[in-house]
């Protein structure tokens, strides 16, 4: 008669529904602010192991040796300190300890010197975007710079964008010495949502811009 019990039960339901709705909305908000997958490289970057470069190698004196400090690519908002990396136990290039840093492979020449200067970086960490997150947005012709410990700046222009499957990676082609002052940047791409891993490497090459 008083309707006390139903009313009480109803208020419990109401509270539960309110809490549930709030929770659901929070989930929605999370989904909308969670880190987005990195930009994808152009379709032309997809490569087969048989593909071969026909870029002529012109002689270039390059800059004197000086280790890299910072890589900047203003067009994609990239500005990352560079740390030194060596080879890992399996012979591959080790990644920088700090995912927000790029790694310069110390077995290669310094960026700006004649030869193939090799840098690597994470596309993402376990938490979100990392140093080389934006590399997929690079296109041929984009400028990038490396400031070096001697205070000089090496200016490069992107000349190559390639995606290679990790299980068919052309090591000699990517890591081989070049007669020009070349900068190679490598990160992961090709997310496999089933295996929850990246299947490929994105390989960007850039040539020292004549000053």
């Amino acid at each position: 008669m008083t309707g006390f019990r139903p009313r009480g039960r109803r208020s419990v339901y109401t509270a539960a529904a309110t809490a549930f709705t709030t929770g659901a909305l929070a989930l929605l908000a999370t989904a909308m602010t969670a880190p987005q997958p990195p930009p994808t490289p152009p379709a032309s970057a997809r490569t087969a192991p048989t593909a071969h470069s026909t870029v002529p190698q012109l002689p270039s004196a390059g800059l004197p040796r000086s280790e890299p400090a910072v890589i900047s690519i203003p067009k994609i908002g990239l500005h990352t300190p560079v740390e030194k990396v060596a080879r890992a136990g399996d012979g591959s290039i080790a990644l920088p300890k700090d995912p927000d840093h790029a790694g310069w492979y110390t077995g290669s020449v310094t960026p700006g010197e004649r030869g193939n200067a090799i840098t690597v970086g994470h596309v993402d960490s376990e938490k979100g975007p990392a140093a080389f997150y934006g590399l997929g947005a690079l296109r041929k012709g984009f400028p990038l710079t490396v400031t070096r410990h001697d205070g000089s700046t090496a200016r490069f222009t992107v000349t190559g964008i390639e995606v290679w499957a990790k299980n068919a990676f052309p090591s000699q082609r990517v890591y081989g010495p070049t007669n020009t002052a070349t900068l190679t940047l490598i990160t992961c791409t090709g997310w496999d949502s089933t295996r929850r891993t990246y299947r490929s490497n994105l390989v960007i090459t850039a040539q020292l811009t004549p000053s």
């Binding site: 929605l28 997958p37 012979g91 290039i93 993402d124």
Partner: peptide
């Protein structure tokens, strides 16, 4: 010389599948 591809990603920006699912679920529930 180095050998093989690099392991340059941990997947922290690739929760797209699960997030999309929970977003849809959240929308329904809300």
């Amino acid at each position: 010389a180095p050998a093989g591809a690099v392991a340059g990603g941990m997947g922290g920006t690739q929760n797209g599948d699960t997030i999309a699912l929970s977003a849809a679920g959240g929308l329904l529930a809300a």
